[in-house]
Design a protein around this nucleic acid. Structure first.
Length: 171
DNA sequence: AAGACGATCCTG
DNA sequence: AGGATCGTCTTT
């Protein structure tokens, strides 16, 4: 099966499960000039709600994190270090405050670099993956070999969060 | 109003 | 190892 878009129900599940299942899925992007490109997701990270001290929502509900408290199936983008737009998908039910960070696409490794490749900006904040005409996800053949690792760049969160194996990678 | 900082990347 | 670069959040 190809060309079937992932619907909101796919995202409204356990964040770790969604992060894992997103590996190998197709990310489709239609650029402003009408060009369509498809990418294979190769690396993801799970951020599991307010109790997860590495998760942005652990600091509470703010203008920046409010979309993460919506029901799954929306885009959460934010600017990091003044230069890179990082791409996340909101997961679980309304109020959960969870999301999956996309860390790598085939040929475009690194969360900042893929944001640049996809020409992301703040207008993608809250984009609906079910109805968007410029970014969505499609089913693809499952990936056999997926490895688990600690998440990157979250030392400040402390234990047990820095030790959780919530980074998933296609091998 | 001002300061600190970051789920990164690039250069030297 | 260190700088770039700026929106968001915290503190005054």
């Amino acid at each position: 099966m190809k060309n079937d878009r992932l619907l909101a129900d796919f995202f409204r599940r356990d964040t770790v499960l969604v992060a894992r299942e997103l590996i190998g899925k197709t990310l489709t992007r239609v650029f402003d000039d009408g060009t369509m490109r498809r990418y294979v997701i190769t690396e993801t990270e799970a951020y599991c709600g307010q109790s997860d001290l590495a998760c942005h929502t652990s600091k509470g509900r703010t203008k920046r994190t409010q979309v993460m408290f919506e029901a799954g199936g929306l885009v959460y983008v934010y600017l990091i270090y003044g230069q890179y737009w990082l791409l996340n998908f909101v997961t679980e039910q309304e109020g959960s405050g969870s999301a999956v960070l996309i860390r790598g696409l085939k040929g475009h490794d690194g969360p900042g670099k893929l944001g640049r490749e996809l020409k992301l900006n703040k207008s993608f904040y809250g984009e609906n993956l079910e109805s968007s005409t410029r970014i969505w996800l499609e089913n693809a053949n499952p990936v056999n070999q997926i490895s688990e690792h600690p998440r990157v760049g979250i030392h400040y969160a402390g234990e047990p969060w820095i030790s959780k194996l919530w980074l998933y990678k296609a091998d």
